[in-house]
Structure formats: structure tokens, C-alpha cells
């Protein structure tokens, strides 16, 4: 086998070692490139946004374009805050959660209960389809169902409906996954004591999986809190703090969109984005903490 010896000589071996190093080097290089945007984005938001974050930012409504123009002209910090956006986001997320959490939990429990039945498989597929639907399409749907037929105009309820439909598949999936992890023996012990079914769900299943269910819900909220496109078609936005369910309502992402389109207020996009991102990160951190404490 002289040929093998010839090809596997020192030169070939060196080439392979070099190729191996180059490959590892490019894996590391591309990985660093992958994580650089997050660092750049966070840096940009903090560097440009921190100046604007003060008490007013949380307690005052967004300024109008004239006020902003005057401040920018004088080289001052733009007055006012984004209270109408913060209130709207919290309000719509709250309404969306009121719809999505109970329904999501029930369907998650249903899928866990039915396990491998054929109909459960169909439901699972439908949930998958729903999870893949682009958020803008959900905005269209909420527009037709709620804006056109229920509130006869742009409204918080329409925005919440779009957000709720986005949340549901996430909660259903995490609920089923969490319940699957609960040891069968715990449930059987309940049955052995003659506990009725609904009590087993309420007293055994939900408490044992509580941290998992909560994590799923927090992550679902973190996914929808920054949504903009569906709200443009449904909640529209408002200069006022609004808690009426059938009236147009602002939200932090909607305000960012307005600031972005208004040359006088464009400086406000950074602080608002910073706040929005911190809310998402906080929710993620919280759920990580819960997971960490559980294990």
C-alpha cells in the first residue's frame, strides 16, 4: 500500500492540521459575529437612550410635535414621557392575558389528558399552524372581527385580540410540555384517594407544574410585548392614556413608530426602545430565574 504512505506523508498531515485550525477559527469568528449585533444594539440603545429616562418618562404623556420641536431647537431634552404608551401596553397585554391564559391552559391540559389520541394530534397540528401565522395576518383578522364588528372602530380590545391569538399557541405548548414532566405517580396517588378529576387538575396538576406554567406565560408575554404591526391595524394609537376597551389605545411600540416618523420627536425612539427591550429582558430573566430555582 505504497500509495497510502505517500499521501499520508508529513505534508498532507500538516495540511490537515492547518485546515482543522482554520475551520475551528472560522467557527469561532462567525460565532462572535453572530453575537455582535445584540451587543451593538444594546450599546446603541443605552448610549442614545439613557439621557431621556427620568421620572417624567414614566409619568407624563408623550409630547406633541410642537413641544418637541421647541426643545430640540433649544438643544434641551425633549419634555414629557411615554406614559400613554406604557399604560396602553400594560392594559392590552393584561386583556390579552385574560383571554389567552385560561384558554391556553385548558387546551394544554386537554392535549396532556388526551396524549396520543387522534383528535389531539389534529389539535396539535392546528396549534402549530396558528403559531406559524405571521403577526400582521393576525392584525388583519382582529381588524375584521373586532374593529369592524364589535367596537366599530380601532380599539384596545382589537389589539388585545390579536395579541391573545399570538399568545395562545405558546401557552398551550408550554403547558403540555410542563404537565408531561410531572411524574405519573403523583396523579395516580390522587386518583387512588378517590379525588374527583377537576380537583386533581386544580389541586395536583396545576400546583405541581406551577413554576413551569408561569415560565411559559412569562415567555409568551415577552414575545408579544414588542409587537407593532398587528397593533397598527387594530389599536391604532392615541395621545391620551386610555383604559376604555372600545377606544383607540397607544402602546410603547406604536409610540416608537410615531416618533420614528416625526423628525421632531425622533430622539425619543432610543429611550422608548430601551425601555421596551428591558421589559422583554426582565421577563426572560424572571423566567430563567424560575427555571433555575425549580431545578
Amino acid at each position: 500500500m505504497a500509495f497510502a504512505k505517500q499521501i499520508s506523508g508529513e505534508g498532507a498531515l500538516k495540511r490537515r492540521v492547518v485546515k482543522n485550525r482554520l475551520f475551528a477559527g472560522s467557527v469561532i469568528f462567525f460565532s462572535m459575529l453572530t453575537i455582535s449585533p445584540i451587543l451593538l444594539i444594546v450599546y446603541k440603545l443605552v448610549a442614545k437612550g439613557y439621557r431621556q429616562i427620568n421620572i417624567d418618562f414614566f409619568t407624563k404623556k408623550a409630547p406633541d410635535t410642537y413641544e418637541a420641536m421647541v426643545a430640540v431647537g433649544a438643544g434641551e431634552v425633549i419634555p414629557g414621557g411615554i406614559l400613554n404608551g406604557i399604560a396602553g401596553t400594560l392594559y392590552m397585554v393584561f386583556i390579552a392575558s385574560l383571554i389567552a391564559i385560561p384558554v391556553g391552559l385548558l387546551i394544554g391540559i386537554f392535549l396532556y389528558d388526551q396524549q396520543s389520541k387522534r383528535y389531539a394530534g389534529v389539535v396539535r397540528d392546528v396549534v402549530d399552524i396558528l403559531q406559524g401565522v405571521p403577526s400582521i395576518v393576525l392584525g388583519l383578522i382582529a381588524y375584521f372581527w373586532v374593529v369592524k364588528n364589535i367596537t366599530n372602530g380601532f380599539s384596545a380590545l382589537a389589539g388585545s385580540t390579536a395579541l391573545a391569538i399570538m399568545m395562545m399557541p405558546l401557552i398551550i405548548r408550554s403547558t403540555e410540555e410542563t404537565l408531561k414532566m410531572i411524574p405519573e405517580t403523583i396523579i395516580e396517588a390522587g386518583f387512588a384517594l378517590g379525588v374527583p378529576y377537576h380537583k386533581i387538575i386544580l389541586r395536583v396538576l396545576i400546583p405541581s407544574g406551577f413554576s413551569g406554567l408561569l415560565t411559559g406565560i412569562l415567555l409568551a408575554i415577552s414575545r408579544i410585548i414588542g409587537e407593532t404591526a398587528p397593533l397598527m391595524l387594530t389599536a391604532l394609537g392615541s395621545m391620551q392614556v386610555n383604559f376604555q376597551i372600545d377606544k383607540p389605545t397607544s402602546a410603547i411600540p406604536l409610540l416608537i413608530w410615531e416618533f420614528y416618523n416625526d423628525p421632531n420627536m425622533v430622539d425619543l425612539i432610543w429611550s422608548s426602545s430601551l425601555l421596551l427591550m428591558m421589559m422583554v429582558l426582565l421577563l426572560n430573566l424572571l423566567s430563567r430565574q424560575i427555571i433555575a430555582r425549580r431545578s
Partner: peptide
């Protein structure tokens, strides 16, 4: 082993 080590062999070999 040959394939992994990048050694090309004739078909007959």
C-alpha cells in the same frame, strides 16, 4: 478511515 483522513484511493484499491 481513508475517507476521514482525506486519502483518495483508486476504485480497485
Amino acid at each position: 478511515g481513508y475517507k476521514l483522513n482525506g486519502i483518495r484511493l483508486q476504485k480497485s484499491d
